[in-house]
């Protein structure tokens, strides 16, 4: 994916030069290994600072919400699906966007890589399908496919769903992927096991809300956990309140979540927040044949009614 960057810079520069956009939203090189920082570029000269590699996991749709400028945005598969969702939900106007699509081969999981080594990982670079990890006194060449973020390894929409420009030829989509093996594992548990599983999952939660804030779907002006009048949820570290936040947030993402992994990636204590959202994503797929963000023409299942909607849960 390193090869994409010249094309991304070229397109960005051209769009700014021609005045087609006021700004480009993309990534610049981070100060930490395996991290890039979302940034904006407003002049053609600055386009040279844009980067693209396997560390661009942050979902840039999150940076478009309610913006009024003409924006060129760099979008991999999941970003583009969230941009589609944004357009459907009137959070951005299609005509204000030039989408620079990036066919994606997956982002690497920095936590997985750090956890593989006892010593601190100080430098990570990539060469084709290899990831080279360096620290004090060690250097290892690893296969990128073993290091992908969990959601990337099961992704079946690597190519952008909506784009105006392409940074590279489309890539082949992954086939024969068992996307929901982890959800099914939970589904087979007894109720008490399920309860304990989620208790354990959330035991480290700090309520920093990084998962919510990294999520492009979570754009409510005031989140329900921040409502003060009435106050729906307590503010302490009580586990009931923590769980209420997580499962209600997941419900708010039902039929909208693209499993982009932004929530999980952002969590400072490494909670797999997707354990909640993925169940709803699976249900939407199985009950309504719905995958979020694929088309701007179709309305989401939760804002339409069809006589044949499944309703077995209603007695």
């Amino acid at each position: 994916m390193l090869g994409y960057i010249d094309k991304i810079k070229e397109i960005s520069k051209r769009l700014l030069d021609e005045g087609k956009v006021d700004m480009i939203i993309g990534f610049k090189k981070g100060t930490m290994p395996m991290m890039n920082e979302p940034c904006f570029v407003k002049t053609p000269d600055e386009a040279s600072k844009l980067v693209w590699d396997s560390n661009c996991g942050i979902n840039l749709a999150n940076y478009l919400t309610d913006r009024k400028e003409k924006i060129g945005v760099i979008a991999k598969g999941c970003d583009s699906r969230n941009i589609v969702t944004h357009i459907i939900e009137n959070k951005i106007k299609r005509e204000n966007l030039v989408i620079i699509g990036v066919p994606c081969k997956g982002m690497i999981d920095r936590r997985k890589i750090s956890a593989m080594f006892d010593a601190e990982v100080r430098q990570v670079s990539e060469e084709g399908d290899a990831i080279i990890v360096k620290g004090n006194g060690f250097e290892e060449k690893l296969k990128k496919s073993d290091l992908l973020q969990d959601n990337c390894s099961t992704c079946i929409h690597r190519n952008p769903a909506l784009y105006d420009e392409l940074a590279a030829p489309l890539v082949e989509e992954q086939k024969d992927i068992d996307k929901y093996a982890d959800v099914r594992k939970i589904e087979t548990m007894q109720p008490s096991e399920k309860w304990d599983y989620f208790d354990n999952l959330l035991s480290g939660c700090l309520r920093c809300y990084a998962c919510r804030n990294a999520c492009p779907l979570c754009y409510c002006p005031t989140c329900f956990v921040d409502e003060a009048n009435p106050q729906w949820v307590g503010k302490s570290q009580d586990e009931t309140d923590i769980r209420t936040f997580h499962f209600l947030r997941a419900y708010h993402c039902a039929g909208r979540c693209t499993d982009c992994g932004a929530c999980e990636r952002a969590c400072p204590v490494g909670i797999n927040v997707r354990a909640f959202t993925k169940k709803l994503e699976k249900d939407c797929f199985e009950m309504f044949g719905w995958e979020a963000g694929i088309s701007i023409e179709k309305r989401p299942p939760l804002d339409t009614f069809k006589p044949d909607d499944p309703g077995k849960f209603i007695k």
Binding site: I186, E187, P191, K194, W195, F247, K279, I314, K315
Partner: peptide
Amino acid sequence: MEHMGVEPGRLNFSWI
């Protein structure tokens, strides 16, 4: 709700 451990039957929906 059942997915995170609320027992089946405790939460009920009906259209009346």
